[in-house]
Write a protein that binds this DNA or RNA. Structure first.
Length: 457
DNA sequence: GTTGAGCGTT
């Protein structure tokens, strides 16, 4: 049965509730949707005083007992991301880049966010009166800022209502983009600027594994590929169709494997890039518009952010982000080497159908698994009010306390999200500073929880 | 001293 599980980013911190599946397991994708980069769960065993790890298999976390009970779990992150643990010392030396799953020091290193570069971010919807100092104060909660700008009219010095920021590290950027922001009483959006479109290094985390044999189970593939990096999903079409999809947490791992042949259970499988789901096999090319490809949705890890020019797609497509634009030749099925007859056309068509059906695209950071959408129906906002110090400016952070389709509902049955920024009343709704501390003025939501001033998770 | 979808005097 489904229940909500309390998870904290670190022990002692305020937990957030994440929904389990009907079978009682917690999808790793559900966890990582709220805790980007998380790769597992643990909790402190009161009997022994030590931390106890939660079983993870095939992208699912299993309750330690008959259910999850009421204990508070702590999200586990790959060592390289656990900056808080490493403290301020030796932060520059990346002694280990391995994820916990990584074995035997292979030549594939899991870089996680290290390879993700920061971009300038545009901040839209700023109050006219907000200054760069205000922005710096507000956005510093997410991490070190390298740049803060508020665009003003050169003559009047009046703010144009938008600005730009840049974080020093991707993790900060990721966190910042994963939510909307209440700044001086207005909801503001942080997005990748249009001018930076295509400059992102979006890489597919999902690989196509061809020439699979029938005796290869998902566990086999997970075990095998686990030595190259953290595997977040394995998908084997049923009935047997001689191929599978393996999704890694790190797109670089996927890319490194592409083109290689590997021996699994005595059979030679071929690994190649999984095609985007909108690949147009009739014209033997992918769709021309990157927006139609879901590309603009692929980058911002903010699942609630609209894409530029209103191209927001429903978020029920699970899947992986895809190299696009900057990596023109690794898309589609053109790189599956038909000429070598490694796969027959029926197999390719079946593979494409699978990708189209279950979705090959998704936002970075929303580790996908199975057919479960990362965003469900009912969403409960958490509003944090942040007082901007002596400037008396007030800002609050909105994140989500729980995501799911509510009691009894399955996430798979969640309705698609409308393709516009009025979803959940955003886009046009603005909340006064006085309202911000209480119920957000966005329609249909339940009672928001409050968090201490300045808190982040 | 007004406005509220957008995209950056370098």
């Amino acid at each position: 049965m489904s229940q909500y599980i309390q998870v904290a980013e670190e022990e002692g911190e305020e937990p957030m509730e994440v929904p389990s599946e009907e079978d009682g397991t917690l999808l790793l994708s559900t966890l990582s949707a709220q805790f980007p980069g998380a790769c597992g769960l643990k909790y402190r065993n009161p009997d022994t005083g030590s931390m106890r790890g939660i079983r993870l298999a095939d992208g699912r976390l299993y309750p330690p007992d008959v259910d999850w009970s009421n204990r508070i779990y702590v999200a586990v992150f790959p060592k390289t991301e656990n900056k808080k643990k490493s403290g301020s010392t030796a932060s520059g030396s990346n002694a280990s880049t391995s994820s916990p799953d990584e074995q035997d020091g292979g030549h594939y290193k899991s870089k996680k966010y290290e390879r993700q570069r920061c971009s300038d971010l545009i901040v839209l919807g700023l109050p006219w009166k907000s200054t760069e100092e205000d922005l710096r104060k507000y956005f510093s909660q997410f991490g070190e800022l390298l740049m803060v700008q508020v665009k003003v009219d050169p003559k009047t010095r009046q703010s144009k209502g938008f600005g730009f920021i840049r974080f020093a590290d991707y993790d900060s950027q990721f966190k910042c983009m994963s939510q909307r922001h209440m700044i001086d009483g207005r909801w503001c959006d942080v997005r990748i600027p249009n001018s930076k479109e295509g400059a992102q290094q979006i890489m597919n985390r999902k690989v196509f594994v061809g020439r699979c044999t029938e005796d290869m189970t998902a566990e086999d593939l997970r075990n095998y590929f686990g030595k190259y990096g953290e595997v977040v999903d394995v998908f084997i079409p049923k009935p047997f169709r001689a191929f599978a999809f393996v999704t890694f947490a790190d797109p670089e791992v996927s890319q490194n494997l592409c083109g290689e042949d590997h021996i699994i259970k005595g059979a030679s499988v071929h690994i190649s890039s999984a095609a985007p789901k909108n690949y147009d096999r009739h014209n033997d090319k992918k769709s021309t518009s990157p927006h139609q490809l879901g590309y603009t949705q692929a980058y911002p890890p903010n699942p609630w952010s609209q894409g530029p020019r209103g191209t927001t797609q429903p978020m029920h497509n699970q899947g992986t982000p895809m190299a696009q634009g900057s990596l023109p030749n690794n898309l589609g099925l053109g790189n599956l080497n038909l000429g070598a007859l490694q796969f027959n056309p029926a197999m390719l068509a079946a593979a494409q159908a699978m990708l189209s059906g279950q979705g090959g695209w998704g936002p970075v950071g929303l580790v996908s698994q199975g057919n479960n959408p990362p965003v469900g129906g009912n969403v409960t906002p958490v509003t944090t009010t942040i007082t901007g110090g002596e400037t008396s400016s007030q800002a609050s952070v909105q994140s989500f306390g729980s995501i799911g389709s509510g009691s009894g509902g399955t996430m798979g049955a969640a309705p698609p999200i409308p393709n516009n920024n009025s979803f959940l009343g955003w886009g046009s709704s603005q909340v006064s500073a006085s309202e911000a501390g209480g119920s957000p003025g966005v329609g249909g939501w339940g009672t928001p929880q409050s968090k201490p001033s300045g808190a982040w998770n």
